[in-house]
């Protein structure tokens, strides 16, 4: 199986001197296509930092991050931004939709940023919305949608360009458990279709959908369960 993401001995510090906080400490992790990883751990244990580093939002203080065979540190800012747009789909707890754009326009944003012609971007976005059962809200604005609908739009946006790596940070944190389950099922489907995903979550019910459950404790990552599926 393809190694979509590989972290090797990654450590990450915030701040300097006495204020230095080691958010990740010697983390190594390989995620392959078709694999869904859940990362659990108390708040402040480093889950968001791990996702940010895996997604090239920032470079780690120490260690190497390889996405789809490319070491992120070898890329200049422009090339790194392109990898983020093309290969990685981010999903956040608070959906991060743009309020002044319609649902359809929101989904199209990453494609347009990636220089897709507008007509093609909109067509692909419409298809993505249809797959998620969201066509009837395509022309609505995010504020008129329920939380569950907004998160489905966010997943449509994150996956419309068929990214090979999906990174979701507490994607169901603001949703009731039944809606949360439908959200994790959408991520599971993308993974079964060949993506790799890491989902940071407090919710053990969602973690149970993963192929592997990892736990972070004070920046240390350890395996909790392996391959139950």
């Amino acid at each position: 199986m393809t190694e979509t993401l590989k972290l090797t001995d990654v450590s990450h510090d915030y701040g300097h001197g006495d204020l230095r906080v080691r958010a990740l400490d010697g983390v190594s992790l390989t995620v392959r296509a078709g694999e869904l990883i859940a990362v659990m751990g108390p708040s402040g244990s480093g889950k968001s930092t791990l996702l940010g580093i895996a997604g090239g939002m920032e470079h780690p203080s120490i260690g190497e991050v390889i996405v789809d065979g490319t070491p992120l540190r070898s890329l200049n800012a422009q090339a790194l931004a392109a990898v983020r747009r093309r290969s990685i789909g981010f999903i956040f707890q608070n959906y991060n939709l743009i309020p002044i754009l319609t649902v359809l326009e929101n989904v199209a944003v990453p494609l347009e940023l990636d220089d897709w012609p507008r007509a093609r971007a909109l067509k692909t976005s419409r298809q993505a919305l249809a797959e998620f059962g969201l066509l009837e809200v395509a022309d609505s604005y995010p504020e008129n949608l329920s939380g569950g609908q907004q998160q489905r739009v966010a997943i449509a946006r994150a996956t419309a360009g068929s990214p090979r790596l999906i990174l979701a940070d507490e994607p169901t944190g603001a949703l009731d458990s039944i809606t949360g389950e439908s959200i994790v099922r959408l991520i599971r489907e993308r993974v079964d279709a060949g993506a790799a995903a890491i989902v940071a979550t407090h919710d053990a019910r969602l973690a149970a959908w993963a192929d592997r459950v990892l736990t972070l404790e004070d920046g240390h990552l350890y395996a909790t369960t392996e391959m139950q599926r």
Binding site: A204, A208, V213, T215, T225, Q228
Partner: peptide, 17 residues
């Protein structure tokens, strides 16, 4: 505590499956 977490999550995975 880790060993017990592993038990509980494995059980959850089985039930979910």
């Amino acid at each position: 505590l880790r060993a017990q977490r592993r038990e509980a999550i494995t059980r959850l995975q089985q039930l979910t499956h």
